[in-house]
């Protein structure tokens, strides 16, 4: 395989990996605040991207407004789900919420199919498909755009968590809930906020990736890759989620290049199982002490 090909495939993998990273971040944001896993994260991404698309089709909105519509739809959906369903089970164990979100995932996918049918839809892109040529290397603007857009969003998140009151409150809750409450932070508000924030991140990821993979009710399955990415990085670690996502995207893309077709698609899952077995804390995480 020539170097030029390898570069192209790796860049393409980084683009896919950026989406996994954003999905992983969304999962980690909710996990850090509430210690629960939102299995419906991928389907929330799907529904909000569909909402943006529907608005785009109805009113011929510019793409940036479409993205804002998707983010708004995601925020609203997350708020309603958190307030109406998740809040009721606040005292529940982690797997109660996992099961509830599995139920939500089924419902969202089914409802989206009823409203928008199960067919693939073309989605407009910020970026072109014609390759940019750099010497022997050919790069697709859409791949670079996804990577750039995702990195920008990650920087925004970094700023939010380190330089704003809200962000600091969220980190405080992540570290020590009781302590945060004693400090006068409304833990419930942080719960809602983390759901909204995670959904918004998902919506942006959805708008970025939909032009490449097309918009369909099937795209919610990305949550599994997001989870794998988060585990590779160390579940709970935000830099880990980003690194894990990128790594997963690249490995997933390189596998078909070097491995026979029999094994290549099991690679992400084998990595997941291997990481869980060899180093459950992931690349960046710490093992949490279990408390009584």
């Amino acid at each position: 395989m020539s170097t030029a090909t390898l570069v192209h495939v790796v860049v393409s993998g980084l683009a896919t990996g950026s989406i996994y990273a954003l999905m992983a971040l969304a999962l980690v944001i909710i996990y850090n605040a509430t210690r629960t896993l939102n299995f419906a994260q991928g389907d929330m991404l799907m529904v909000s991207t569909f909402a943006g698309w529907a608005a785009h089709r109805a009113w011929e909105l510019p793409l940036i407004v479409t993205m804002l519509v998707a983010v708004a739809a995601a925020a609203l959906l997350a708020l309603v789900i958190e307030r109406v369903i998740i809040r009721r089970s606040i005292a529940a164990t982690h797997w109660d919420v996992l099961i509830i979100t599995v139920g939500l995932s089924l419902m969202l996918r089914s409802a989206a199919g009823l409203v928008w049918t199960h067919e693939d839809q073309a989605f407009p892109s910020f970026f072109g498909d014609r390759p940019i040529t750099l010497g022997p290397v050919k790069l697709a603007p859409v791949s670079l755009g996804i990577i750039g857009g995702s990195l920008a969003l990650m920087l925004c998140l970094y700023g939010l968590f380190t330089h704003t009151r809200v962000g600091r409150a969220m980190r405080a809750v992540a570290q020590n809930q009781r302590g945060a409450r004693l400090m006068g932070i409304s833990v419930e508000r942080v719960y809602s906020l983390s759901w909204v924030l995670a959904a918004a991140v998902g919506a942006i990821a959805g708008v970025l990736v939909a032009p490449v993979t097309f918009l369909s009710t099937k795209m919610g399955i990305v949550v599994i890759n997001g989870f794998t990415a988060a585990v590779i990085g160390g579940f709970g670690s935000m830099p880990g989620a980003v690194a894990g996502g990128m790594l997963l995207g690249v490995i997933e893309n390189l596998a078909p290049l070097y491995l026979p077709s029999g094994i290549r698609y099991s690679v992400p899952f084998l990595i997941l199982v291997a990481i869980l077995l060899v180093r459950p804390a992931g690349l960046f995480g710490r093992i949490e002490q279990r408390k009584v």
Binding site: V231, S266, V273, L276
Partner: peptide, 28 residues
């Protein structure tokens, strides 16, 4: 046996991955 050390969510997700791998192996 190797999954023993994993608690809660991790085990659920490891079993999820297991399901995918089994289907993939049967397919191939």
């Amino acid at each position: 046996v190797p999954c023993l050390r994993l608690g809660g969510l991790y085990l659920s997700m490891a079993t999820l991955a297991f399901g995918f791998v089994v289907a993939e192996v049967i397919l191939n």
